[in-house]
Design a protein around this nucleic acid. Sequence first.
DNA 1: CGACAGATGCAACAGAGTTGCATGAATACA
DNA 2: TGTATTCATGCAACTCTGTTGCATCTGTCG
Lengths: 151, 151
Amino acid sequence: MPDIPPASPPTDGDDLAERIRATGARATPARIRVLELLTAAPAPLSHQDIEGALGAASLDRVTLYRVLDWLVESGLAVKRADERRVWRFSVVGGGVHHGHVHFRCETCGRVFCLDAPAPRPPRLPGGFTLARAELDLSGRCAECNAGGGGT
Amino acid sequence: MPDIPPASPPTDGDDLAERIRATGARATPARIRVLELLTAAPAPLSHQDIEGALGAASLDRVTLYRVLDWLVESGLAVKRADERRVWRFSVVGGGVHHGHVHFRCETCGRVFCLDAPAPRPPRLPGGFTLARAELDLSGRCAECNAGGGGT
DNA sequence: CGACAGATGCAACAGAGTTGCATGAATACA
DNA sequence: TGTATTCATGCAACTCTGTTGCATCTGTCG
Ligand SMILES: [Mn+2]
Ligand SMILES: [Mn+2]
Ligand SMILES: [Zn+2]
Ligand SMILES: [Zn+2]
């Protein structure tokens, strides 16, 4: 699968703490752990994904919401609603989830990063200004197509 | 603004009732009224938009949910989540909201239909099948750019 | 005008996300 | 290294959107 680029290069915990402090905020375990998960993930993660991944060492639900919001506000991550209207978060800066196209499998719900270039945005009506353009593809992934019926 | 196509041609109430019965379901006031609103709207409407537009003659909240779901199931409308994760419904068949690009104003939240063609979807990894491709643009609309600060 | 499937309204529920406030801990500084 | 300060966390309570079950009502057909 040469079309799916690898996740960000592995990052040290202290590294992450440094990036967090660079924003002027405190490097807390919650922030480090969440940023670590997002950095290692091959695709944007939902709140629920993260809660699950934290497992035993789970954070308070509200704290996770706040950490995620903070990551976005501070510019370390971006959030985006997928077609199922769940927020998906991805780190920014590694340039990982930036400028390329996402494919969402309608069967298993996974999100894949394609290395196709973002399409050229069309001309806008007069007075309109463009902030973001996103191309969202959806369908069935290879695995779900192969596996017959997906649950 | 030649870039924003007009809404569907004005439709008689009996006309709408006819379209509803054609699906095999009953033409109730709730369905006619909602379909009428969607048909007249220049852009996809949210549940809240419709509740507001109904005003005094408002339906039960649950009934509106069910009418909207029914419209989608029956193929008379499509629903789509915007970037704020609110469902937006639009009639289908007039071909109004099909095959073109939407622009969402991040300030006032309105959705505009552009007559730019949908972009060509990129090649997918092997085994993947494409069901839908949507280009979503966002930024500020002409009105919000002109009016200074939008609420 | 009935009869009856199916649509509505109401109440109660479920889940995601938010807010206020008291407690705890990362950082700065002595 | 110890302490003070300020920010982050956890908890409880709340809001908002959407769903479910059930009794009542009504559009359609005969
Ligand atoms: Mn990506
Ligand atoms: Mn449209
Ligand atoms: Zn899949
Ligand atoms: Zn606007």
